[in-house]
Design a protein around this nucleic acid. Sequence first.
DNA 1: AATGAATGAGACTTCATTCAT
DNA 2: TATGAATGAAGTCTCATTCAT
Lengths: 186, 186, 186, 186
Amino acid sequence: MKKTEEKREKSKKILVETALSLFSENGYEATSIRQIASEAGVSLGLMYNYFSSKEELLLEIFRLGYKDIQHSFAKSGKPEGTSALKQHILQTVQLLKEKKHFWRLLHSLRFQRNIMAPVALEVQEQINYVEAQLKDNLMEAGVHAPDLEAKLLFASIDGMAMHYLLNENYPLDEVANQLIQKYTTH
Amino acid sequence: MKKTEEKREKSKKILVETALSLFSENGYEATSIRQIASEAGVSLGLMYNYFSSKEELLLEIFRLGYKDIQHSFAKSGKPEGTSALKQHILQTVQLLKEKKHFWRLLHSLRFQRNIMAPVALEVQEQINYVEAQLKDNLMEAGVHAPDLEAKLLFASIDGMAMHYLLNENYPLDEVANQLIQKYTTH
Amino acid sequence: MKKTEEKREKSKKILVETALSLFSENGYEATSIRQIASEAGVSLGLMYNYFSSKEELLLEIFRLGYKDIQHSFAKSGKPEGTSALKQHILQTVQLLKEKKHFWRLLHSLRFQRNIMAPVALEVQEQINYVEAQLKDNLMEAGVHAPDLEAKLLFASIDGMAMHYLLNENYPLDEVANQLIQKYTTH
Amino acid sequence: MKKTEEKREKSKKILVETALSLFSENGYEATSIRQIASEAGVSLGLMYNYFSSKEELLLEIFRLGYKDIQHSFAKSGKPEGTSALKQHILQTVQLLKEKKHFWRLLHSLRFQRNIMAPVALEVQEQINYVEAQLKDNLMEAGVHAPDLEAKLLFASIDGMAMHYLLNENYPLDEVANQLIQKYTTH
DNA sequence: AATGAATGAGACTTCATTCAT
DNA sequence: TATGAATGAAGTCTCATTCAT
């Protein structure tokens, strides 16, 4: 029957969303299963019907988040009037706003090697991919030392993202525009 | 007696250093007091003679680390032949290399609000100070929109630092130079 | 309707058999209801339509197993050419081989008072009955101190059974023959 | 200082003894750490200062118990006036009475493969050793088929032990004597 | 009759902290 | 000052059991 399936999906979804929110706000280690269950309005043990452990729940959140982001980037399509670089930055800004919880979680765990280990590979691939994209875009724009420039640009974007995620009132759009101008005017 | 005082300081110092190292490598939450004591070669309870709690030990590490950094920046003096901006970036690079443990700890806890709360004010002050410095330097260099530019430059520096701290083989010097050139050539 | 009745019995039977197998292999406590249901190919909750609890299922297994054994002993009839003792031992050997799962479960729980409590009486009766039988048989054979001898013989048989159940390659037939000879030759 | 060492040993000892008693009475799985601590009059967590897990505590109990038994057998020395067989059986009877808790625990776990796994080797060695001893003794006594006879005798002794451990009023001495007579008179 | 999502008590274990020595 | 045995709250996870469908 469908009913059961729907119920399952609904419970799973509310658990993932609640967990993402709490992990993001208070940290992964500082958030207890009891807290998640309570906030989600379900019983303590329900999580274990869907995830084999707290860590597995985290990994699922990662997987879903990454899929989401890649989907967004893919969907955004090729730049038309605007340069690829501008498009990339704007898209990043958009995603930062839309998935703030996810990004915050990602940043908060970035330095926890023990936790990141299971997804380290995917993360690294993602990083390499972004850097390669940036490099291509920079080469198209005829920049010298595109390798180093890509690293620098990536750092700028990442740093901006970090500051936005840490600061409630960060003028993300303005800083992003400033960055875009740096790379599009001569 | 002097002897006692010295012993006290020595014990305290070894605890702070060991804790910084372990917190940085394995994470604050993942490091137990027992581990610190064991690694430091002292008894389990000794820490509580000097710090009222694990958190207080962390805060002391923060305070000492910040003092250290401010000291370094102050000592480096005014720029002479080189621009203030260049000097700031180079000094940052230098400190990143020298105090890697401390920076890594800082970055790994940056998003843990519950932990950062007690030092949030000092951290914010430090951030404001750096941003103000950068702004001054940019104004001197006659840059438009120095406010936004300062935010962007800070993000670039911070992003670069983050990538360096995350990546064993990051070409920090090269990226830093690239950044310096961006802000010193016309 | 008959159909329903049949279905009921079938489900019950498969649950009992699966549970016996798993309890015997992995232990009563270490076997979960979920495991039994999964192995039996039925839903998690089905068991509770037939048994009020996990313990009740165990008791049913005991009851059925004992009934089975008594049936076998009854059916085997009186000894003809051979002595009653020989017959008893051979019958026991036969049953040990046929109902290995049941015997193993019985032995594995024999010392768990809390679990055995509900069937303690039946078990004790069974033991008394066997001992009485053995005593009768020994008296017929004209043995001195038949009471003690019955206890000793029972211990020998039980010990042999235990060793057989514990050891994949136990030479049950040979040891049983040795035992038979001890009590049939002069 | 000695004081600390003594305290350690004392705590460890009371934990081992309490655990042995409870495991033996109620079963290993059915006994919780909380129960042990409570019965021992110590805090819940103390056990983990001495044993890394509940299972490790069990293994320590095994090791100590086995050592104890081997010690006893070794100490009992060679038989003088009496036959080796008689001596062996009497010594076993003695140990059964003295270490009832330990034997009961051993018997109650004998069929739990998952739990016995870590000590399976030692147990098997012990079994082999006993069987070899019995065989030697039987050969000395000029018995036919000493291999099978050893197995049978071992089964008898083990079965007797089991019945004694299960039954508060088992006439162990009498049954043992009966067994001795079986193997010492012609 | 059958299903399986949901519940929550309770198990094992960790670890910051206390305190007698 | 230094030690480390002892404490117990709190965490993760399991699992028998319930009940709406």
